[in-house]
């Protein structure tokens, strides 16, 4: 009797553990299935032409130059604006408002923004920056991306400043250093790699965002560096071209998809590496 139940327990255990291994295999399978599909479908469309020519009308040859340019410009503006604000906001929430309920509420609100559906951010920017001006613009696109990057940078700054040992703050204070100077030249420096990781992750998050750009930057078939006008960008071009019936367009969409995924995976891996370098140092 005892052996029978022992055997039953062992069997149940092996079944459960096999299922757990299978679950991990399923997860890895999907990662590789998606990556291999992208490589297989996208690799042939990656060529020099993709980086030197603009998006074509259906049936003609072309590249993704205007879309790549637009994505880089809008992401750039978004990050340049969101980084200092996110950094300062994270500083306040981590250094000045410790334990105070207002700070806790602001942290909570930031976390809500962090996970809020990006399409909602798009609707917001549409009502604030597109409707009043009467047209779509790269500014609006950059603003929506910035709004998505801001909570990411804010949150990582909070987490990273929290890891800086208090003895550093006390040592600086004992030397009579003003607090702002302590922050700039001691605390930020100690948390630098962590903050950098946050910024890299924010870039990675923003690069693939499509939904908010649909009604802010929209798209532009031509090369445009006018920030007040609609601007092409990779995600929206991928969306429009992939859902089009034209083979050339679909092919370009796969090329763009591969490009964007590689860029994001590299950013993710570099971010991990930067964060890892930090933990090894300590």
């Amino acid at each position: 009797m005892a052996t029978a139940s022992y055997n039953a327990r062992r069997t149940r255990n092996s079944i459960a553990m096999t299922l757990a291994v299978a679950a991990a295999a399923v997860g890895l399978f999907f990662l590789f299935a998606i990556l291999i599909t992208l490589l297989y479908k996208g690799f042939t469309s990656i060529s020099l032409q993709m980086f030197t020519e603009n998006t074509p009308p259906p049936g003609e040859d072309g590249g993704l130059l205007n879309a790549i340019f637009g994505s880089v410009v809008m992401t750039g503006i978004a990050i340049v604006v969101a980084t200092p604000i996110g950094l300062l906001a994270g500083t306040y929430l981590s250094e000045y408002s410790r334990g105070h309920w207002i700070g806790e509420a602001a942290k909570f609100i930031n976390d809500i923004l962090l996970s809020a559906p990006s399409i909602i951010i798009g609707l917001f920017v549409y009502t604030v920056l597109v409707v009043p001006f009467g047209h779509f613009s790269a500014w609006a696109g950059a603003a929506s991306l910035g709004l998505i990057a801001l909570p990411v940078i804010n949150r990582t700054t909070q987490d990273m400043l929290g890891l800086v040992p208090n003895s550093l703050r006390e040592a600086a204070a004992a030397l009579g250093t003003p607090r702002w100077k302590t922050m700039l030249s001691v605390i930020y420096r100690a948390a630098l790699s962590g903050i950098l990781t946050g910024v890299l992750l924010a870039i990675a998050r923003v690069t693939g965002e499509t939904a908010p750009l649909l009604f802010t930057a929209l798209n532009n078939q031509f090369f445009s560096s006018n920030l007040g006008a609609p601007m092409a960008n990779l995600p929206v071009v991928i969306f429009q071209f992939a859902t089009s019936p034209y083979d050339d367009w679909q092919k370009l969409a796969w090329g763009g998809a591969l490009l964007i995924t590689i860029a994001i995976l590299i950013l993710n891996i570099v971010a991990r590496w930067v964060a890892g370098a930090r933990t090894n140092l300590q």
Partner: peptide, 10 residues
């Protein structure tokens, strides 16, 4: 990290 549009495409 894979953007949602890639999931859609796939």
């Amino acid at each position: 990290g894979i953007p949602s549009i890639i999931y859609g495409l796939w």
